[in-house]
C-alpha cells in the first residue's frame, strides 16, 4: 500500500513540476486546477483505503449520491416525480450499498435492479401524469443502473474471497481507468490527428485512444502485484478495464452532448462534476468484478 501512495504522490509531484515549466495560458490554468483536484481525490482515496471495506462503501455511497444528483439535473422528470426521485436517493442507494457490503453476490446484483425495473414504472404511473411517461421511467432506471448499481461494484470488490493486501483490487481498477483517461488526453494532445467521433466527444482522437489504452495495458502488467494474477493476465485485464472505461465515458459524453453541456457540474475544478471522473468506472467496475471473480475465486 505504501508503494501505491508513494507512486501516486510521485506522479502528481511530477505533474506539478511539468506544469510549473509550462508558459502561462488558460490551458495551463485548467491543468493546475486538474492537478489540485487530483491531489484531493488521492487524499480521499488514501483515507478510504486506510478505513478498508467500510471506507470504500461510505466513499462510493457518497460518490453515487453526488453522481445521481448530477444525473437528475439532465434526466426528464416532472414535479410529480419528486417522491420517486427522493426514494432513489434515500432508499435504493443505502439498500444497494448495504447489500454490496454483505458480499452476497446474488442479493447485491439482483434486488435493486429488479425492484427498480418493477417499481419505478408503477410509482411513476401512480403520479397520474402520463406526459413523457416512458422517457421519465427509462431515464430514471438508467440513472439508477449507472449511478447506484454499477458504481457499487467498486466497494463490492473488497468482499471477494481473494487474498488482497488492503484495498488493492479497487485501487487497481481506479488507477488503470484514470491513468488511461489522462494518457488518452495527453496522447491526443501530443499526436492526435484523427477525431474519433466529433459529434459525441469533440476532443477524443484515435491516436489518443490507442496510446492511452496501450500505456494503461503496460501499466497493468507492471502493477500485476496488486492483483491475484501474473503480468500477462493483469495486462489483459488492464486492457479490458481501459477499453470498457473508454466506452463508459463515451456513453456519458453522448448524454452530455445530447443535453448540450460540457461538464456535469463544477464540483471538481478542472475536471467538471463527479460524473466526469467516474464516467470511466461505471462500466468497467462490473466487468472487472466478474473477471476477477471468474478467474481468481475458486
Amino acid at each position: 500500500m505504501a508503494i501505491i501512495a508513494i507512486g501516486i504522490s510521485g506522479a502528481l509531484m511530477l505533474a506539478n513540476l511539468v506544469r510549473s515549466l509550462l508558459p502561462a495560458s488558460s490551458l495551463v490554468d485548467n491543468l493546475s486546477a486538474r492537478i489540485q483536484s487530483w491531489w484531493r481525490i488521492a487524499v480521499v482515496l488514501a483515507l478510504a483505503s486506510l478505513a478498508g471495506q467500510i471506507g470504500f462503501l461510505v466513499l462510493f455511497a457518497a460518490v453515487s449520491f453526488m453522481a445521481l444528483r448530477e444525473f437528475s439535473a439532465v434526466a426528464v422528470s416532472h414535479p410529480t416525480d419528486r417522491h420517486v426521485s427522493a426514494a432513489c436517493f434515500f432508499v435504493l442507494l443505502p439498500v444497494q450499498y448495504a447489500l454490496a457490503g454483505t458480499g452476497n453476490v446474488v442479493l447485491f446484483t439482483s434486488i435493486v435492479p429488479l425492484t427498480s425495473v418493477a417499481l419505478v414504472p408503477v410509482f411513476t404511473a401512480l403520479t397520474a401524469d402520463s406526459h413523457a411517461y416512458l422517457a421519465r421511467v427509462s431515464e430514471r432506471i438508467f440513472a439508477i443502473v449507472v449511478c447506484i448499481y454499477c458504481l457499487s461494484y467498486v466497494p463490492a470488490l473488497l468482499t471477494l474471497p481473494v487474498a488482497q493486501d488492503g484495498a488493492q483490487l479497487p485501487l487497481f481498477l481506479i488507477l488503470i481507468t484514470q491513468v488511461s483517461d489522462v494518457l488518452q488526453y495527453i496522447w491526443g494532445k501530443a499526436v492526435g490527428a484523427h477525431l474519433l467521433a466529433p459529434h459525441v466527444s469533440p476532443s477524443k482522437t484515435v491516436e489518443g485512444l490507442i496510446g492511452g489504452i496501450g500505456c494503461a495495458t503496460a501499466l497493468g502488467a507492471a502493477l500485476s502485484w496488486m492483483t491475484p494474477f501474473g503480468a500477462v493476465h493483469a495486462a489483459a485485464i488492464a486492457f479490458l478495464i481501459s477499453l470498457t472505461g473508454f466506452l463508459g465515458g463515451f456513453v456519458m459524453s453522448a448524454i452530455k452532448r445530447d443535453f448540450g453541456t460540457k461538464d456535469w457540474s463544477g464540483l471538481l475544478p478542472g475536471h467538471g462534476g463527479i460524473l466526469d471522473r467516474v464516467d470511466s468506472i461505471w462500466l468497467s467496475a462490473p466487468v472487472y468484478f466478474y473477471v476477477v471473480r471468474a478467474l481468481a475465486v475458486k
Binding site: S72, A73, R82, H83, A86, F89
Partner: peptide, 20 residues
C-alpha cells in the same frame, strides 16, 4: 437554477438535484 425541482413550494422532502 433547479431550486424548484429540489424543493418546490409546499414540499417537505427534498429530491436531491444539482442546482447552480
Amino acid at each position: 437554477d433547479n431550486a424548484y425541482r429540489l424543493l418546490p413550494k409546499g414540499a417537505l422532502v427534498p429530491a436531491p438535484i444539482e442546482c447552480s
